[in-house]
Design a protein around this nucleic acid. Structure first.
Length: 665
RNA sequence: GCCCGAGUAGCUCAAUCGGCAGAGCACCUGUCUUGUAAACAGGAGGUCGCGAGUUCGAUUCUCGCCUCGGGCUCCA
């Protein structure tokens, strides 16, 4: 056996090591700093523990804590420590799975006698986890036969289930040789309450890899909350107790994340909705049903006005359809078959069964069918701010984001097949242009394909529709993800997500191809050849739901709407009563120029009024005193600025504010 | 719908180990007339989420319900 092996590093260089060296040894031989940051290694493109022994000719990359991959391992390993702590502290507890997730990790448990975790338990569990970290317990990998695994995990029914399904379960692992891969955390001395037959340590089924020991990279975590979660995500299964945690590579990253959560909480649209007096959810009306207060109402009106204006320009025709309809149209469309649970219960009336509409599309199809259509009319673009009602389950409601009654900026576009690709391409431009007008710049696109368990229509039709969407994305040179099986039952779709001011992603717009509704409703047009043809229908929403879009905007702007949308665009504060006439004059002139302006009477200190209006996030807080009366000027406190600008001629101020409104600045 | 948590004045939150319920902001009245993030005084405001039970007495303890929040599931 040769005494040296040679391995190749990512930069293509080669490195010699003594035979029997591990990936960790390699890291140490390269640099102390690298060894310190090393979490795992990638050997010939397979993730391995640092204890993995290298052989001659391996290609090796050291994965460090500051990479996404390294962080994923840190979170995964922290989840193991959580499970170890819980099993030690709660005799009789058993466990399900514990993967890393965005920002952290979770682990699912079942406590004996239907026990549940309480918020207080998190502190105890976290303290126990920190003890385990201090003990530097090694993560020791082993590959064992299924029989041995069944013995070790005899007390853990969910693990037994995983062993039986090992080959299909992504969180467990069968090795290349068909064995079950486990990791054991070996404590310095045997622990009470361990339930792994024949072992002193804590053992979990796991494909790994893991950090070398519990004291490597693991300290920067925090347990966040407890929640119920169904085993394997299926409501029919027992509900387990889930503990969520967040974990990071450094103390600073953890602190940043917690601060980000605080920032998000400050922007919470429900909180801002109350603070800025925009909307509310009176319980007398019922869950998930909002009322809009005047300040929120004006913003909504502006959004709707803008949407209408753009659609008018864009060649859309406006329609209106009722909130209530006989069951037949939803039987025809298929909604009743797929979504009856999500619809409000039927109302029996003298001439039939009626439903609140959960969608506008069937009614738009009836508008189309109102008379014979010619190819000359296509594309026919129908647009409606259509209010729909969906019976969302009580536990899913969330402010304006998930609501039971909402208004879609809904369009259904009927095209001839040869117009399809152009129309979708045009739609993409239209959608992005409107979203940009609301301050969004960063978009991601997803193509959702057929759900094999939930679809209507032929495979051929689906293929055609999916291709049309794909082509439109490609023509724009847009990168997009593919969500397999995420489509609506009637057709594939493109979803557009926007990134907000603090980096969160929101799914807003959707463009859906639909070959099925036209068939179900027997829609036709007469072509140039004097034959009847079947149009293709596109479903399309920009805001999606106006309520939800408003909520997203509110969080995006943290309540500080840009001037064109601000409920109050300017407030004029006279320094004292004697300046009130001038204040009124300034306000009148602004109002004549189309600015939403108020006067803040001098019955309170100037400082108090400034403070109040700053908290109301008014874009321009204007102050007029003696000098201003004499010179026809104002002082402008621009939102976000720290000093007032004095002596601005009123005419200049009007130009400044109207320009902001015009430019959506 | 299921698991966890919370409901006290319009808002943010105290307190009561079972004995007449408190503050700040907001609101109303008055005084102050002010040049940039809270002037002063007074007043009003409560079925302590709702309903039962235990008790001499329940906002407080028990049970049920409702609403809200965090998750799970679902989202045409």
């Amino acid at each position: 056996m040769p005494e040296q092996i040679a391995v190749t590093l990512p930069d293509g260089s080669s490195r010699e090591l003594p035979t029997g060296s591990t990936a960790g040894d390699l890291a140490r031989s390269i640099a102390r700093g690298l060894a310190k940051k090393a979490v795992i290694a990638e050997v010939n493109d397979v993730e391995r523990d640092l204890s993995h022994e290298l052989v001659d000719g391996d290609r090796v990359a050291i994965v460090t804590a500051d990479s996404d991959q390294g962080l994923y391992v840190i979170r995964h390993s922290t989840a193991h420590v959580l499970a170890q702590a819980v099993l030690e502290l709660f005799p009789g507890a058993t466990f399900g799975i514990g993967p890393p997730v965005e920002n952290g990790f979770y682990y699912d448990f079942e406590l004996p006698d239907g026990g549940t975790f309480h918020e207080e338990d998190l502190e105890r569990i976290e303290a126990r986890m920190r003890e385990i970290l201090k003990e530097s317990q090694p993560f020791v990998k082993s590959e064992i036969g299924a029989d041995e695994a069944r013995t070790i995990f005899a007390d853990h029914k969910y693990k037994l289930e995983i062993i039986e399904n090992a080959s299909t379960d992504p969180m467990s692992a069968t090795s290349d040789r068909g064995e079950v891969r486990c990791y054991e955390n070996i404590p310095p001395e045997p622990r009470p309450n361990q339930t792994f037959h024949g072992h002193d340590g804590f053992i979990d089924l796991c494909r790994g890899p893991h950090v070398p020991t519990t004291s490597d990279h693991l300290g920067h975590f925090k347990l966040m909350r407890v929640a119920g979660a169904y085993w394997r995500g299926d409501e029919k299964n027992p509900q387990l107790q889930r503990i969520y945690g967040t974990a990071w590579a450094t103390k600073q990253e953890l602190a940043d994340h917690l601060q980000h959560l605080e920032e998000a909480a400050k922007r919470d649209h429900r909180r801002l909705g109350t603070e800025l007096d925009l909307f509310s959810f009176p319980s007398e009306i019922g869950g998930g049903l909002a009322v809009w207060h005047p300040k929120g109402g004006i913003v909504r009106k502006l959004m709707e006005d803008y949407s209408r204006a753009r659609h008018e320009e864009g060649g859309y025709e406006f329609v209106y359809t009722p909130h209530l309809t006989k069951a037949g149209v939803f039987e025809t469309s298929g909604h009743l078959h797929w979504y009856a649970d999500g619809m409000y219960p039927p109302m029996e009336m003298d001439n039939g069964t009626y439903y609140m509409k959960p969608m506008n599309c069937p009614m738009h199809c009836l508008v189309y069918r109102g008379r014979q259509r010619s190819y000359r009319e296509l594309p026919l673009r129908l647009y409606e701010l259509g209010t729909v009602y969906r019976y969302e389950r009580a536990g899913t409601l969330h402010g304006l984001m998930r609501i039971r009654g909402f208004t879609q900026d809904d369009s259904h576009i009927y095209v001839a097949e040869e117009q399809l690709a152009d129309e979708i391409a045009g739609l993409l431009d239209f959608v992005l242009s409107v979203l940009r007008a609301f301050g969004f710049e960063d978009f991601t696109f997803n193509l959702s394909t057929k759900d094999p368990d939930k679809y209507v229509g032929s495979d051929e039709i689906w293929e055609k529709a999916t291709e049309a969407l794909r082509e439109a994305l490609d023509r724009h040179g847009l990168e997009y993800g593919v969500k397999e099986g995420d489509a609506a039952f009637y057709g594939p779709k493109i979803d557009i997500d926007v990134r907000d001011a603090i980096g969160r992603s929101w799914q807003l717009s959707t463009i859906q191809a639909d070959f099925n509704h036209p068939e179900k409703f027997d829609l036709t047009y007469v072509g140039a050849d004097n034959e009847h043809h079947r149009p293709i229908m596109l479903h399309r929403a920009l805001f999606g739901s106006i309520e939800r879009f408003f909520g997203v905007l509110l969080e995006h702007y943290a309540g500080a709407f840009p001037t064109w949308l601000a409920p109050v665009q300017a407030v004029v504060c006279p320094v004292a009563d004697e300046h009130e006439d001038h204040a009124q004059t300034v306000a009148d002139r602004l109002r004549d120029a189309g600015v939403r302006v108020e006067v803040s009477a001098a019955d309170d200190g100037l400082g108090a009024r400034i403070r109040r209006h700053k908290m109301e996030k008014v874009p321009h807080i204007l102050v007029v005193g003696g000098d201003d009366v004499a010179n026809d000027t104002v002082a402008d406190n621009v939102r976000g600025g720290d000093k007032p600008e004095r002596d601005i001629p009123v005419a200049d101020l009007i130009e400044r504010i109207t320009a902001e409104i015009r430019d959506h600045a």
